[in-house]
């Protein structure tokens, strides 16, 4: 009996040294959505998601331990912060509106300007930004290694003490568990429930998907974005050059990654800088055709919508809100 116990102990000890054998974590992917592409070295497990979740809500990641990821990505605000631009430590103002993290697993590149290729590397930016957490991954890792709980979590998740690798992986792993896709619209489309949308919402959908609005060109697919970079003519002169900040191309000035419209009614304010406060302002902007910036998308032209049509369109946008 003792020998069996020892053998089991020996076996468990040895197993810990191996690359963690991972029970796969069941992602709650909405109906009709594809499996997201996940890096092989960061497939989700209970332990990894738990480690990432703990880090996500812990201000330990910021220099003065005052803000966490959830400070700008509130669970009760659909993982946005409801502010024009994000607020970092000591009240420092950033330059851009915090995007929702729901469905972030499907994002091909990160940020409004696409400057970072994946979620794992994205983790570095808010931690290092002077206007956000103003800290350093090396210092974060040192802090976490003072914490027995995090040491155990990192070991369980990635078979190593807290490291740059394990911290960036864990946060990305947690973020890939966040989805949205249970709206009235989804009920209408995926459950074929023809009563899910009101007549006004259906008329709004026709404007959205039809030639009258042409909204779907950029806000298409199950995500309501094609993830392209577009200048939508909100300024003649852009204080934030957008995509051009990365590419340095004049032809990219004022272009930003098209955002998803899921939960759009719950994620005001709008645009890269939060300059539009309501859906009414947004629809009015597109109806006007925008300002004549040389890079403005050719799809942004005056729409001549009637008041009823604008109302219908807004009602449809509200039907993209998650019912959960």
């Amino acid at each position: 009996m003792i020998y069996t116990g020892l053998l089991i102990l020996l076996f468990t000890c040895c197993k810990k040294e191996d690359i963690p054998v991972t029970e796969t974590y069941k992602l709650e992917i909405p109906k009709g959505f594809p499996q997201p592409t996940i890096p092989e070295n960061n497939l989700p497990t209970e332990e990894r998601v738990a480690f990432g979740r703990a880090l996500f809500f812990d201000p330990i990641l910021s220099r003065d331990s005052t803000i966490s990821c959830s400070s700008c990505h509130h669970v009760d605000k659909k993982f946005t912060d409801g502010l024009d631009v994000s607020v970092g430590i000591e009240g420092r103002l950033g330059i851009r509106n915090a995007p929702s993290l729901l469905n972030v697993a499907y994002q091909p590149v990160m940020f409004w300007d696409g400057g970072v290729p994946n979620l794992e590397q994205q983790v570095l930016a808010p931690i290092e930004s002077h206007f956000e957490m103003d800290f350093n991954l090396i210092s974060v890792v040192e802090r976490l290694n003072q914490n027995e709980n995090y040491k155990a979590m990192s070991m369980a998740a990635y078979n190593q003490l807290p490291s740059i690798f394990s911290v960036t992986r864990a946060l990305a792993c947690f973020e890939r568990t966040l989805y949205t896709g249970v709206s009235k619209y989804d009920d209408f489309v995926y459950n074929k429930n023809s009563n899910a949308l009101t007549d006004s919402e259906k008329r709004g959908m026709e404007i959205f998907l039809g030639e009258e609005g042409e909204c779907f060109h950029c806000h298409g697919t199950y995500l309501f974005t094609d993830n392209s970079y577009k200048n939508n003519g909100i300024y003649l002169n852009y204080a934030d050059s957008g995509r051009a900040r990365i590419t340095t191309l004049a032809s990219d000035v004022g272009k930003f990654k098209v955002p998803s419209l899921r939960n759009v009614a719950n994620t005001a304010p709008y645009m890269h800088d939060g300059s539009f406060k309501t859906l009414e302002e947004v629809v009015e902007h597109y109806n006007s055709g925008g300002k004549p910036h040389p890079n403005k998308s050719g799809l942004i032209v005056p729409l001549n919508l009637t008041n009823q049509e604008k109302e219908d369109l807004i009602n449809f946008l509200k039907a993209l809100s998650d019912e959960k």
């Binding site: 940020f111 300007d113 400057g115 970072v116 794992e120 590397q121 983790v123 570095l124 930016a125 931690i127 290092e128 930004s129 350093n136 991954l137 090396i138 210092s139 740059i164 690798f165 960036t168 900040r245 990365i246």
Partner: peptide
Amino acid sequence: TLYAAGNPLALQNPPIHWSWN
């Protein structure tokens, strides 16, 4: 984030890598 500490390409403190681009 994939380099071991000590590799010149690993993250440094202060950083010598742009996290936003």
